[in-house]
Amino acid sequence: MDFSAISVVSLLATLMVAATPILLAAIGELVTEKSGVLNLGVEGMMIFGAICGFIAAVETGSPLIGFIAAAAGSAALSFLFAILTQYLLANQVASGLALTLFGLGLAALLGHQYTGIKPPSSPKLDLPILSDLPVVGPILFNHDYMIYFSILLVAGVWYFLKFTRKGLVLRAVGENHDAAHALGYKVIRIRILAIMFGGACAGLGGAYLSLIRVPQWTEGMTAGAGWIALAIVVFASWKPWRIILGAYLFGGVTILQLNLQAVGVDIPVSYLSMAPYLVTIIVLVIMSADRKRASLNAPASLGRIFHASN
């Protein structure tokens, strides 16, 4: 047993790649949930993004167009959910589950012609001196552009929610939609935009999987990543920066156990995989128990149906 064989540097670098799809999906779902909508269809939106991005990238030869198409495609798919829950007042939990089923099926149908193809490869950041630095180089300066984008996106969401007026309105809608409505905010419009933002991010996460991390298209390739994204939002207690921590922790557990095995350490895989979820529950309990910090907790209107009575 030789733990020193595990290089922390390359472990961190791999971990970032493994965590990026769930990070992207989670930051989108965070915005959706902050507006008071619980969309359980992340898995369906992710895989739909994975195939939309894959098709676009293969057909045009441009990964960038692939990512744009993935965001657009999944946003369009999430619009179905938005219509159901916002206009037709359907239950969010049930609609989200239906969205997952629909997305998985539709993606597989579209992808039928696209198995066994290699997508165009995505460029990596290659800064003359920086990328070659020991330790810092591989961790910070030698990734594909999407990793940097995902972190910028988190920063953007954080700034938006914390410092902009629109962000404030979005949070208000999520906390108390009736009050927000009374103040004249367009609750439904804001929520639809938040849902579509969530869809677009999930699509990017899916496309990251099919274009960079694996990279190929296979049916069912998200293999539950969307559900993990949902857990990460809770783990992060709806705080953008903690999404990064959560995603790297959840992604890291898998990477770590695979690496431990590779150096010959005998580990109980299932019990280790359970750990992040247990930690999430503990985090949730701590956040909830402390009533003074109630504002940090789940958006108060999460999952509730809004209908303007006047």
Partner: peptide
């Protein structure tokens, strides 16, 4: 069958030489 996990496993093995 889990392409993501299989990819990660391959990466881990490569890192181990």
């Amino acid at each position: 069958f889990d392409p993501g996990k299989e990819a990660d496993a391959a990466t881990a093995l490569i890192e181990q030489g």
